[in-house]
Nucleic acid binder design. Structure first.
Length: 470
RNA sequence: AUUCCCAUCGUCUAGAGGCCUAGGACGAAACCCUCUCAAGGUUUAAACACGGGUUCGACUCCCGUUGGGAAUGCCA
């Protein structure tokens, strides 16, 4: 049997990291088993579904490189199919028309709550003999079995069993004629040949109802895996007030898809002591049956650590292609300076995000007027003009084409030696002069990146400024 | 209220009855390295929610308590 999984988000908002993890697990399971992965948009809620959300979900999936073999399918395009089945069920009594008004249902619920009962539809129209005129509005309810229990084996949770007495007759077609989610998923998963349904934990309670529908449709029941929730750092359900929740926000904040994927796969799953997984390793090693049952808290620090790891270890050209996005985002014109891959090489170890990297390397491409105050105060001494002057003299002797870190480093060293001061007393004033900041990559590589003419200009300017002040 | 689900360091996890004096990672602390900031290296602190069973033996199995979460929609 070919394994076929799907990811079926409802387009009511952006792709949440929780949804992304579910999609990843589903995708990995299919890939691991040489199966197929389907993307389906569950847009039966006409009120809340938006094209904007559909676009955002697709963009997120593409950014994460979670490619799908089929789809995207849209439930709204399959209404005829659902309604045909519902009509058939209506005809042979697997479903029935319900004329109950909202008011009656509300009252019923209130009374049940008051009595301390679980609010459930009472089956009023299931057995009613009332006559209704053809133009009276109605919805359609599924005739759920009243006896017995529903059992299923969940790949993550194990065996789950619930009594049919807990389940009421759910609405499968609204009064306005549109079918509802619990019915559509079943029909879709059946029609599309889904063998394994991997989805969020919030669907565990719906599963028994859906299994009953599968049976009513005489369809093969797929296997299930319900993935737990993702919590914020405070243990509450992860939401916007915790910071970034949408996949695109992580892109905007400077994360690499490789890092997000690795972080997400480890959040709820492990393979011994291994922390770092390439996508191929994930595919080879991932297993639904060992996914953690409990909810897990999102730890931004660990994601940052992983992001830094991938910034350092992935091909600099590749990382640069992502950095490019942030350079544009921050409106830094990088066309007249060093290649972005050389920025990646120099800044990788000191940046946990690409957004930071873009911010930090700005002075390589643009001039600045302000110098970091704290750093200046700490490192600019009485002898600084002399230090800078000596550097300037020696740097002048280095040609443009020899303006390389390995040739610049000896200059700094020799100035320190000649003046009998530490490297820091030379390097730091230089760094501040050339970058305007108190921190940067090694002073030699930094100067190489900035280039000779700009370095000379900047050093001179600061030297003159300090000399003038004395 | 009812039903279902969950429970190992602050966080993510390893652990499928003896391998556990509970391992790793992030974070934290300390030290080393060092031209800054990082990165890197070494080290330290830090957990089996509680109570009963079962067993020669329980982090691991069972029951209960407590604490979280979800569902009970003509949302998905």
């Amino acid at each position: 049997m070919t394994i076929k999984t799907r990811f079926a988000p409802s387009p009511t908002g952006f792709l949440h990291v929780g949804g992304a993890r579910t999609a990843l697990y589903s995708w990995l399971y299919a890939k691991h088993n040489g199966g197929q992965f389907v993307l389906r948009i569950e847009d039966t809620d006409l009120e809340r579904s938006t094209q904007e959300a559909i676009d955002a979900i697709i963009e997120s999936m593409k950014w994460l490189k979670l490619n799908w073999d089929e789809g995207p399918y849209y439930q709204t395009k399959r209404f005829d199919r659902y309604n045909k089945l519902i009509d058939e069920m209506l005809a042979d009594g697997r479903a029935y028309k319900c004329y109950c008004t909202k008011e009656r249902l509300e009252k019923l619920r209130e009374e049940q709550m008051k009595r301390g009962e679980k609010p459930c539809y009472d089956g009023h129209c299931r057995c009613s003999q009332e006559q209704h005129s053809p133009d009276e509005p109605y919805c359609v309810r599924f005739k759920n079995p009243t006896e017995g229990t529903v059992k299923f084996h969940d790949h993550i949770r194990g065996d789950v069993e619930i009594s049919n007495r807990e389940l009421d007759d759910l609405v499968i077609r609204r009064t306005d004629g549109t079918p509802t989610y619990n019915f559509c998923v079943v029909v879709d998963d059946y029609d599309m040949g889904i063998t394994h349904v991997v989805r969020g934990e919030d669907h565990v309670n719906n599963t028994p109802r859906q299994i009953n529908i599968y049976k009513a449709l005489n369809a093969k029941v797929p296997e299930f895996a319900h993935v737990s929730m993702i919590l914020g750092p405070d243990g509450a359900k992860l939401s916007k007030r915790h910071g970034a929740v949408s996949v695109m926000q992580y892109r905007d904040d400077g994360f690499l898809p490789e890092a997000l994927l690795n972080y997400l796969v480890r959040l709820g799953w492990g393979h011994g002591d291994q922390e770092l997984f390439s996508v191929q390793e994930m595919i080879d090693l991932f297993d639904l049956d060992t996914v953690s049952k409990s909810a897990s808290a999102f730890d931004l620090n660990k994601l940052k650590w992983m992001n830094n790891h991938y910034i350092k270890t992935l091909d600099p050209e590749y990382v640069a292609s992502h950095l490019e996005w942030h350079m544009k985002d921050q409106k830094i014109d990088y066309s007249k300076g060093p290649a972005l891959s050389s920025i990646v090489k120099a800044y990788a170890e000191r940046c946990s995000t690409l957004k930071e990297m873009a911010e930090q390397c700005r002075y390589v491409y643009e001039d600045f007027t302000e110098l970091d105050e704290a750093a200046s105060k700490k490192w600019f001494k009485a002898n600084t003009p002399e230090v800078l002057t000596r550097c300037l003299e020696k740097f002048a002797a280095v040609s443009e084409e020899n303006w390389k870190a390995e040739n610049l480093h000896p200059v700094v060293e020799s100035v320190a030696q000649e003046m009998e001061i530490g490297m820091g007393k030379v390097g730091m004033p230089l760094r501040i002069a050339v970058t305007g900041r108190g921190q940067s990559p090694g002073i030699d590589v930094t100067m190489e990146l900035i280039g000779k003419s700009k370095c000379m200009e900047r050093i001179e300017r600061v030297r003159d400024m300090l000399a003038g002040a004395n």
